[in-house]
């Protein structure tokens, strides 16, 4: 390996969380967030096969590449679902300013970490609802059965948990789009 090759393992270890989150967020739109790992793997393979030159900010490159691979998958899913004519919309998906993109991803990551930290304010049952039903999107009926309550009660518990989390967070982190 040439000495100029980046230390991919070190870079991946540092940025893999952001790469997975970005890919999952993109793929969520089509209900295929579980393919985020594949998109990240494709991103890493393409980076390793053709390392970009003169990189100042590896996080930006890695996050943007993961996003691009996720968008490729999204487009493929759209083509499979609706035919080629609807698959074109993501051809022009603008990656935007990479720096801005990464700054936003970093902000979201910070906010997500904060909300995760605040799960500690919830009691066990509400924490389970918040994590399993809201964060991991397990079916409401399954979570309800495990807790011995009705699905409607799970919704009530989710709302109560989200209210507690919102109130525990700093106001700027709960910004509306």
């Amino acid at each position: 390996m040439p000495e100029t090759q980046p230390d991919w393992a070190a870079l991946y270890l540092k940025h893999r969380d952001a790469m997975h989150r970005v890919a999952a967020k993109v793929l969520r739109e089509a209900g295929i967030a579980d393919q985020a790992g594949d998109a990240v793997q494709e991103a890493m393979m393409s980076l390793m096969a053709s390392p970009p030159d003169d990189v100042r900010e590896w996080e930006a490159v890695m996050v943007a590449t993961a996003k691009r691979r996720a968008l490729d998958r999204l487009r493929s899913a759209a083509v499979r679902h609706a035919g080629p004519e609807l698959g074109e919309e993501h051809d022009h998906a603008d990656l935007g300013d990479v720096a801005e993109e990464v700054a936003e991803a970093a902000d979201r990551q910070r906010a997500a970490a904060e909300v995760w930290d605040h799960l500690a304010v919830l009691d066990d049952r509400h924490r389970k609802v918040a994590w399993e039903y809201v964060a991991l999107e397990r079916p409401r009926a399954e979570v309800a059965e495990e807790l011995g309550v009705t699905p409607a009660r799970v919704s009530q518990m989710a709302k109560a948990a989200l209210e507690q989390l919102r109130d525990a967070m700093s106001p700027e982190e709960v910004a509306h789009d």
Binding site: A36, A112, W116, W131, A158, E173
Partner: peptide, 12 residues
């Protein structure tokens, strides 16, 4: 919005 942040926390 809080639910979305929680979802992202669960998808690292």
């Amino acid at each position: 919005e809080v639910a979305d942040l929680l979802w992202e926390a669960g998808h690292g």
